[in-house]
Nucleic acid binder design. Structure first.
Length: 201
DNA sequence: CTGGTGATGATCT
DNA sequence: GATCATCACCAGT
């Protein structure tokens, strides 16, 4: 069957539904203000695009788990996998506002304004003390201390979408699919800075 | 605000 | 060996 523009990957709905939800770990709680959807093996921007590897294995697994990866030699990013097993979709948690554990968050993030504490995917994992040891852990488990809680009300009219951040390559730059979602007017939403190809020095 | 760049290592081909 | 779902810090407008 031909695809229609109105057919959107189910993970987009999941992504939007995560805005406003509470995430708590390591003594810090944030309210999600920005997320990004990655739609399985058909999505050239996704880690799952080239098929299963050891790194992305959690994406191909059952829903209800965290996919955490390490990048740029120093940063962690966290995703939630809520799609059916084998679909390999995930939602990157890009930014949030700290609503509890402010002192702990500040101490983890060093010199940073409060608005920047969890403003960006790597800042958020540092704020919440999430690292590779949490890859594959169950969402909501008390063992790992990770909790995906209820939503604080979000006005549907305030949800925006736009290009995904940091992607490059054939068929995969950020503007190909506007699958980054955020709450309009939230100070903690990360600034969009287009990816630029760079050479190593 | 914008734009440039160094840091730093796991992962994949 | 190249790439990377980034950030902190700097200088300029």
């Amino acid at each position: 069957m031909a695809e229609r523009a109105t057919d959107e990957p189910p993970v987009l709905r999941t992504a939007r539904s995560l805005l406003g939800r509470i995430v708590g770990h390591g003594g810090v709680t944030v309210r999600l203000t920005e997320v990004e959807a990655y739609a399985g093996v058909a999505d050239p921007g996704s880690h799952a695009f080239r098929g299963p590897t050891r790194r992305n294995a959690v994406m191909f697994g059952p829903p209800g788990h965290l996919y955490v990866y390490f990048t740029y030699g120093m940063h962690h990013c966290m995703n939630v996998v809520l799609s059916p097993e084998g679909e390999a979709s995930a939602v990157l948690l890009r930014a949030g506002a700290v609503v509890d554990g402010l002192a702990t968050a500040r101490s983890r993030r060093g010199r940073s304004s409060d608005r920047d504490l969890a403003r960006g995917p790597a800042r958020m994992t540092k704020c919440l003390a999430i690292d590779l040891s949490h890859n594959g852990s169950t969402i909501g488990s008390t063992g790992a201390g990770f909790v995906l809680g209820p939503a604080v009300a979000v006005d549907a009219d305030s949800i925006r979408c736009g290009p995904r951040v940091g992607l490059s390559g054939p068929g995969g730059d950020g503007t190909a699919y506007p699958w980054r979602f955020w709450i309009d007017g939230e100070p903690s939403v990360s600034a969009y800075r287009p990816a630029k190809p760079r050479r190593r020095g």
